[in-house]
């Protein structure tokens, strides 16, 4: 089979997968009725109405802003901590209790605790989500750092390479596929948690809108806002997946050699 055929087939499978979701939605809507489960058409009409009112884009934007802030914080701090704990057993030991606690704790707890301690504000929402996702970033980056080939660092030292050159030419290409993979997982976790934090204690954002339409028992609103943020984040995820593919090209080349 030619490469072009393989690509076409791969896209066909993807298309079939999305079509099956749409079909399941239609079946569920027909079975439960439009009040309990509005179909794609009714939901799209609601989306259009919210777009015309100028509310949907603003609310999605607010949520995205919070998601990206928590994501950037978690990736920045998580990369530094993960790198340090992957390189130093002592540091890993010092961090281990915190990481274990962070991974084990029920994810709703930091949100509730932050709202109690800091009040129902932006800082509490973003900070709590940052704390929820941070241990996952640390663990994944740490595992990536452990796979770095020490022989290449040795070679770089022999040839007198400086720290920045080693980081750029030796460490980053090995670490990049892990970092992009971690970024995807982190983004996914961040937006779920932010929507949850908004639902619990904010007066704006997609989570708040979902809570609002839940109280109104308006399924169209719940689905419309859920769908809008999902589409936005699928687009962002696709961007990260593309970046991850580019970063991992050399591994793929080696694997197929």
């Amino acid at each position: 089979m030619t490469q072009a055929n393989l690509v076409v087939r791969s896209w066909l499978y993807r298309g079939a997968s999305y079509a099956s979701i749409l079909l399941a939605w239609l079946v569920l809507s027909a079975w439960l009725g439009p009040k309990l489960m509005p179909g794609p058409g009714e939901t799209w009409a609601f989306v259009q109405r919210e777009l015309e009112r100028g509310v949907l884009l603003v609310q999605v934007g607010i949520t995205l802003q919070r998601v990206l802030l928590a994501f950037a914080l978690a990736m920045g701090v998580g990369l530094a901590l993960g790198f340090a704990s992957g390189r130093s057993q002592r540091f890993e030991g010092l961090l281990e209790g915190w990481v274990a606690l962070g991974l084990a704790i029920p994810r709703i707890l930091p949100i509730v605790v932050a709202y109690v301690l800091l009040g129902l504000n932006e800082l509490a929402a973003v900070l709590s989500v940052f704390l929820i996702v941070l241990p996952t970033v640390v663990v994944q980056v740490r595992e990536g750092v452990r796979t770095l080939d020490p022989r290449l660092f040795q070679m770089s030292r022999v040839f007198g390479k400086g720290a920045l050159e080693v980081l750029y030419f030796v460490a980053w290409p090995q670490l990049a596929p892990f970092v992009w993979g971690t970024a995807r997982a982190t983004l996914s976790l961040c937006w779920k948690m932010i929507v949850f934090a908004e639902l619990l204690g904010r007066t704006s954002g997609v989570g708040y809108q979902i809570a609002f339409y839940f109280q109104m028992f308006e399924m169209r609103g719940i689905l419309a806002y859920g769908l809008a943020i999902t589409v936005a984040l699928v687009a962002l995820d696709a961007l990260l997946a593309w970046g991850g593919q580019r970063a991992g090209r050399w591994r793929a080349r080696e694997a197929t050699a």
């Binding site: 030419f169 290409p173 050399w250």
Partner: peptide, 9 residues
Amino acid sequence: FQEPRLLPW
């Protein structure tokens, strides 16, 4: 080195 130790990327 014993092995080439080239940067594969």
